[in-house]
């Protein structure tokens, strides 16, 4: 059988130690090793951004990173956002009808969470550019832009997403 490497990755605040094949990418690690299936795979070549997660607070396309490269790092996925209630960012998506099939949604949520974590308030045009790394085929984006803008506006001070 192929060789394996040991990785220790902190995901949503919890440490996981696993033996993985070197070729396993982070998205597969999250989905199939940890059962965190909220991170979705759409292209496996870093274009669609549906697999976006935070690695040490930065938005990363998890299909473009090997699990072994994430060794020792902090990963945050969509599963970290809601507690009992939806996270305000998720609520903003719901209120604006910013999702249809919901497949790309975790990618947009994490891309937006990265912007929020940096405490930025991009203009509509900047936001269009920043979110262009995640592709949605259902909504036409308008409602996603509205949801993210409203959230960034209403949020007041920076919340700790990505911790």
């Amino acid at each position: 059988m192929p060789e394996r490497v040991e990785v220790t990755i902190s995901v949503n605040g919890r440490k996981h130690r696993r033996q993985v094949e070197p070729r396993m990418h982070l998205a597969d690690f999250l989905r199939h090793e940890l059962g965190l299936t909220g991170t979705h795979i759409g292209c496996e070549q870093g274009v669609c951004g549906n697999c976006t997660v935070l690695v040490d607070g930065q938005a990363v396309k998890s299909c473009l990173m090997f699990a072994a490269q994430a060794d020792g790092q902090r990963v945050t996925t969509v599963e970290s956002l809601a507690e009992e209630e939806l996270h305000p960012l998720q609520q903003a998506f719901k209120d604006a009808h910013a999702l249809q099939c919901g497949y790309c949604t975790p990618g947009f949520l994490m891309a937006a969470a990265a912007i929020a974590a940096e405490g930025r308030r991009p203009s509509r045009e900047e936001l269009r550019e920043e979110l262009s790394g995640v592709i949605c085929r259902c909504t036409g984006y308008e409602n996603i832009l509205i949801a993210v803008e409203r959230y960034l506006e209403d949020r007041g001070e920076v919340e700790a997403v990505g911790g």
Binding site: G38, T39, V78, E79, L81, L86, G102
Partner: peptide, 10 residues
């Protein structure tokens, strides 16, 4: 549909 999809629980 939204709550489960937003939580990544689809």
């Amino acid at each position: 549909e939204d709550d489960r999809l937003l939580r990544g629980e689809g």
